[in-house]
């Protein structure tokens, strides 16, 4: 089957599935609710209804969001011609699970309790397999380079006792694995998407470090290779005021993400705003797929929009649940396509 036509079925099905993505009006209705039960009633009118029925209590809404996301990932994985595209999108969850299990193992060594409740089923590797590997300290069968990375991280912990060092190493491993999968797929837009994701993570980290007033030497370790903007370029702007970053980075698409810099009062507000803007920037990397009827990047685009939908639902429900300022929550909602 020719590559172009190979995605005819998949893209058509994704287009039909994207018709069921939550519209903004639904999120606004959730935000207008006075309590969580009413908000879940509104959510019950959508594709989430099946999962909501399985909840023991309304405060467990996160399980429904995870279940819907898992259902979509599993379904898409069944019919896409190259399931590495789905693997690529699920990979961050594998690394999240590894972080959870490593921290849990460290806690146990210090007399604490295991925290398996923070694991997510959204990863490529089943949580049972991962737990088994961590408990038996037999990492040989763990894919995505984790078989080498986990012992390395444990050794790093023993040497430094610095959890940030461990997280940095795992994040670096995540992006290396993502770049490898994207390159193996031989789909240019998948590579662009990963590069955009690395840029977004680097910018996010840079802003956090700037807020904490860290030195360039420390910051360098938190930046990852492989984005459109080099680490050196990012480090060079660290000493400059954030307002001048868009000018220095004007040669990249990421510069437009700073359009809100002028409006943001301080770095804390800017960081919150940037979380949303950077998510939309990542979605923008594969936005053109909507004009291509047989393009594989439609898979990534759809899955990322589903991720953003899950984030939006979570933001709206948390806002209702905690009775926080709704206008602030409205401002945090991601818009993609």
């Amino acid at each position: 089957m020719a590559p172009a036509e190979g995605y005819g079925y998949a893209v058509s099905r994704l287009r039909a599935m994207s018709g069921r993505l939550l519209e903004e009006a639904v999120l606004q209705r959730i935000l207008e609710c006075e309590d969580l039960d009413s908000a879940l009633k509104v959510l019950g009118e959508t594709v989430y209804s099946g999962w909501l029925m399985e909840l023991k209590g309304s405060s467990e809404f996160d399980k429904a969001i995870e279940a819907e996301l898992l259902h979509v990932y599993s379904e898409v994985q069944k019919f896409v011609p190259d399931d590495r595209l789905v693997q690529l999108c699920r990979l961050p969850y594998d690394f999240h699970n590894v972080k959870v299990l490593m921290k849990s193992a460290i806690l146990v060594r210090d007399g604490g309790e295991r925290r398996f409740d923070l694991l997510t089923r959204l990863g490529n590797i089943s949580t049972d397999d991962l737990i088994m590997a961590m408990e038996s300290e037999d990492y040989r069968l763990i894919p995505f380079g984790l078989h080498g990375l986990i012992p390395k991280c444990f050794a790093l912990w023993e040497q430094t006792k610095d959890i940030f060092e461990v997280e940095k190493t795992l994040d670096s491993g995540l992006f290396t694995a993502m770049r490898k999968i994207a390159a193996d797929c031989k789909i240019d837009s998948a590579v662009f998407w990963v590069r955009g994701k690395i840029d977004a993570e680097n910018i996010r980290n840079l802003l956090r470090m700037k807020r904490m007033d860290m030195e360039a030497g420390t910051v360098a370790g938190f930046l990852h290779d492989g984005g459109f903007i080099s680490r050196e370029k990012l480090l060079s702007i660290l000493s400059e005021p954030v307002e001048s970053w868009p000018r220095v980075l004007s040669f990249t698409d990421a510069a437009k993400t700073f359009s809100r810099v002028q409006d943001a009062g301080d770095l804390n507000t800017l960081l919150v705003d940037m979380e949303k803007v950077l998510d939309e920037y990542i979605a923008g990397m594969v936005e053109n797929s909507k004009y291509k009827a047989f393009a594989p990047e439609n898979v990534i685009s759809f899955l990322w929009r589903k991720e953003l939908e899950a984030k939006n639902v979570r933001i709206a429900l948390v806002s209702v649940s905690n009775d926080t300022d709704r206008s602030m929550a409205r401002g945090l909602l991601r818009h993609a396509g």
Partner: peptide
Amino acid sequence: IAGESGAGVMTE
């Protein structure tokens, strides 16, 4: 080609 797309849409 059209049938492949059609099957995708009709599945949903």
